Lab assay of single mutants.
Amino acid sequence: VTVHVNRYTYHFDNPEEAEKFAREMAKRLNMTVEIHGNTLKVE
């Protein structure tokens, strides 16, 4: 599972951890999480 935050890319083996990380980053940056299959984008 890949998480994109701005120009950074993070890889996770565990989808739940990836989503938790993405949501935490989105909250911190006041952004939203978009899910595209195995890719989560924080925008």
Rank of each mutant, 00 (worst) to 15 (best):
V33W: 04
H4E: 10
T32W: 05
R28E: 07
A18D: 00
A22H: 01
Y10P: 01
H4Y: 04
E43F: 15
E34Q: 14
E34Y: 13
H36P: 01
K27S: 10
G37C: 07
Y8T: 13
T9K: 11
E43P: 04
R23E: 09
Y10M: 03
N6A: 08
H36S: 11
G37I: 05
V5M: 06
L40A: 05
I35F: 12
D13G: 06
E24Q: 10
E24L: 11
E43D: 11
K20T: 10
E34P: 01
R23F: 12
A22M: 03
L40C: 07
E19I: 13
L40I: 15
F21L: 01
P15I: 15
Y8R: 14
V3H: 01
R28T: 06
N6M: 11
F12G: 00
E24R: 11
H36V: 13
R23G: 05
L29K: 04
E16H: 09
T32H: 11
K27F: 06
V5S: 02
N30W: 03
G37A: 04
D13V: 08
G37M: 04
N14I: 08
T2I: 12
H36Q: 11
D13Y: 06
N30S: 07
N30L: 04
V1R: 05
N38Y: 02
H36F: 12
E16Q: 11
K27A: 12
D13T: 11
V3K: 01
E17F: 06
F12R: 00
A18Y: 01
K20L: 11
N6Q: 09
A22K: 01
E34R: 15
H11A: 04
D13R: 05
M25A: 07
N6F: 11
H36R: 11
V42G: 05
H11I: 10
L29S: 04
P15V: 14
K41S: 12
L29P: 07
N6C: 15
E43I: 15
Y8M: 13
I35Y: 13
Y10G: 00
H36N: 13
P15Q: 13
E19D: 07
F12I: 00
N6I: 09
R7D: 14
L29D: 04
H36T: 10
P15R: 14
V3R: 01
F21W: 06
G37F: 06
V42Y: 03
G37S: 03
R7F: 12
A18C: 02
H4L: 12
E16N: 09
K27T: 09
E19F: 14
D13Q: 10
E16I: 12
E19V: 09
P15G: 08
A22N: 00
V42M: 03
T32G: 05
E34W: 06
M31S: 10
R7P: 05
R28Q: 10
E24K: 12
N6D: 13
T32S: 10
E17W: 05
H11K: 06
T39Y: 10
V3W: 00
N14P: 00
N38D: 09
E24P: 00
V5P: 02
R7C: 15
P15W: 15
E34A: 14
N14E: 08
R28H: 09
H4D: 03
Y8H: 14
R23C: 15
A26D: 02
N38Q: 05
V42P: 05
F21H: 01
E34L: 12
T2Y: 10
E34I: 15
E24M: 13
I35R: 14
R7Q: 14
N6W: 12
N6H: 13
T2G: 02
A26N: 02
E17P: 02
K41N: 11
G37Y: 10
V1Q: 03
M31L: 12
V3P: 01
M25V: 13
E17I: 07
H4I: 15
A18T: 00
N6Y: 12
A26H: 02
A26G: 04
A22W: 02
V1G: 02
Y10V: 06
V5I: 13
N38F: 02
I35S: 07
A26I: 03
L40H: 06
L29Y: 13
E19Q: 09
Y10E: 02
V5E: 02
M31E: 03
V42Q: 03
E17Q: 09
F21E: 00
F12D: 00
M31P: 01
A26T: 03
T39R: 09
T9H: 12
M31G: 15
E34S: 15
N30I: 03
F12L: 00
H11Y: 14
V42C: 08
L29M: 08
E17T: 08
L29H: 10
L29A: 04
Y8K: 14
E19M: 15
F12T: 00
K41E: 08
